[in-house]
């Protein structure tokens, strides 16, 4: 894959020729995608197109069958969620992946707990950090003592987002992060995305909201049946053209076609 942008820098992440199959289904088929620092790349596609599966390979949740992953131009071995976090890859999963029976702070620090000098959990310090980061996302949120099962869908989503930004991610994966949020909270996440972007963080954003995508993303990458239809700068394609890519797999002139592009036009 040749990087789309003429920028001389190396991409933050590059996934090359990634494939994975579940049973007989090729959920992701020879997909390639890249992401530069301070860039938002939106991943689009119909339900079951393979978006979540592709980014779960990057976050270490699934092991790819074939393909390579590069971070800062160097090939890396990502075989577990821990590996991904080591490279600064943080993920907001579509399913949120929260432990429902423990509170927000425990979820934020799950797997990376703050410890006291005695080697015990420092719950108070974790709650203090949780209050700070939640204050940034959702200042109204006060239910720090409740297990997250008792929170509303939007509040749970805020907790999942907070967990991803808590550990200074360099690469952020957001799988439909605003699906359950109210308009005000959605706007807040939009602001957050812009702010993180200005800090040089690269973001993969999966969304079905094409307006949001054009508002936030620098590039779009469309998937269909596990394959990449094409990749385009949002300034060089229209919303209708992107819809055509999603629904028909038709790659417009402003986009770089991938293996999944409809061949008829050629």
């Amino acid at each position: 894959m040749v990087p789309l942008a003429p920028t001389p820098e190396v991409p933050l992440v590059e996934m090359r020729d990634i494939s994975i199959a579940f049973g007989g289904i090729r959920a992701v088929d020879d997909a390639s995608i890249d992401l530069y620092p301070g860039e938002v790349v939106a991943l689009l596609g119909h339900n079951g197109a393979g978006k979540s599966t592709l980014i779960k390979i990057l976050s270490g949740a699934y092991k790819r069958d074939t393909g390579t992953i590069l971070v800062n131009g160097e090939e890396v071995a990502i075989n577990s969620p821990r590996d991904a976090k080591k490279y600064g890859i943080e993920t907001i999963y579509q399913t949120l992946a929260l432990a429902d029976n423990v509170d927000a702070a425990a979820n934020l620090f799950l797997g990376r707990e703050l410890m006291t000098s005695w080697g015990t959990l420092d719950d108070v310090a974790m709650e203090a950090e949780a209050r700070k980061v939640m204050g940034r996302l959702n200042p109204r949120f006060q239910r720090f003592k409740d297990p997250v099962a008792r929170l509303s869908g939007g509040q749970r989503q805020s907790v999942a987002i907070a967990r991803a930004i808590l550990f200074n991610a360099r690469i952020l994966i957001m799988d439909e992060p605003t699906a359950a949020l109210g308009p005000q909270e959605t706007a807040q996440v939009g602001e957050l995305v812009k702010q993180l972007k200005s800090e040089g963080i690269g973001i993969f954003l999966i969304s079905h909201d094409i307006h949001d995508v054009f508002d936030l993303a620098d590039r779009v990458c469309v998937m269909k049946n596990g394959q990449v239809v094409g990749t385009a700068k949002t300034t060089e394609v229209t919303q209708d053209e992107v819809l055509g890519m999603i629904i028909l797999g038709k790659c417009p002139p402003g986009a770089i076609p991938g293996p999944g592009a409809m061949k008829a036009a050629a």
Binding site: Y93, A99, D100
Partner: peptide, 28 residues
């Protein structure tokens, strides 16, 4: 009680009970 309330091990036990998949994704 100390083990369940104050240590990583205890925290992980409950997290796994609440959502095994989430616990695995958190790197446990």
């Amino acid at each position: 009680t100390f083990l369940t309330r104050r240590t990583r091990f205890g925290r992980y036990v409950f997290a796994i009970g609440g959502n095994p998949e989430a616990a695995a994704l958190a790197g446990i």
